[in-house]
Simulated scan of single mutants.
Amino acid sequence: MSTSSFTSSLLVHDKAGRYVPATAEQILSEARRVIDLKIRRGAAFTSPGVVREYLGAKLAGYEHEVFAALFLDNRHRLLEYVELFRGTIDSASVYPREVVKEALKLNAAAVIFAHNHPSGHPEPSEADKTLTRRLKQALELVDVRTLDHVIVAGRTTISMAEGGLV
């Protein structure tokens, strides 16, 4: 959905204090803030539904690819959500070394990866599958478990773990 074709019945204050229709980006930004308030540091990610709701709210609506990770403790409680890499409309460069550094910095025991497909096509590409294997192998060397890799495409989310790909 492009922001230019979006009409909103939600109103926000402009700089002069007048009420004006909110843009799609303002609405999505506020949704991301609300999901952060709802699921705070220490919240347990014990069900696929909670993971999908959280990641769907965080990654839907971007017009470029974003690669993120949920870094978790040994009881799958949230340590930190980090948007690690930003890309173009159809790809993002991901560096396993940087992912491992972040996991060690946060003392994570487990991780759930996520990225969005702005195209709206949710199926994992061969590049997604290869990247997931590389990240999993790199993290295994430092005893961090890879639990899942979720792809967000609009309102649809795909779990690579549920598909047997993690």
Rank of each mutant, 00 (worst) to 15 (best):
S8V: 05
S8I: 05
L11P: 12
H13K: 14
H13M: 12
A16Q: 09
G17T: 00
G17H: 02
R18W: 02
Y19P: 07
Y19M: 13
P21T: 11
A22D: 11
Q26W: 04
I27V: 15
E30P: 05
E30T: 14
R33F: 12
K38N: 11
G42H: 01
A44G: 02
F45R: 07
R52Y: 14
E53F: 14
L55V: 08
L55F: 10
G56L: 13
A60F: 07
G61M: 04
E63I: 10
H64E: 11
H64S: 10
V66M: 01
V66E: 02
A68N: 03
L70T: 00
F71W: 02
D73H: 04
R77F: 00
L78K: 08
L79F: 04
L79K: 11
Y81R: 09
V82I: 05
E83Y: 01
E83V: 00
F85T: 00
T88C: 04
D90H: 02
A92P: 03
Y95T: 06
R97T: 11
V99S: 10
V100E: 12
V100H: 08
K101Q: 15
L104Q: 13
L106E: 01
N107F: 06
A110R: 06
V111G: 06
I112A: 11
A114N: 03
H121Q: 14
P124F: 05
S125N: 10
E126V: 13
A127E: 15
A127W: 14
D128N: 12
D128F: 08
L131A: 15
T132G: 10
R133K: 13
R133C: 09
K136W: 00
Q137M: 03
L141I: 02
V144N: 07
V144R: 06
T146E: 01
V150Y: 09
V150C: 10
T157Y: 08
A161D: 05
G164V: 00
G164W: 00
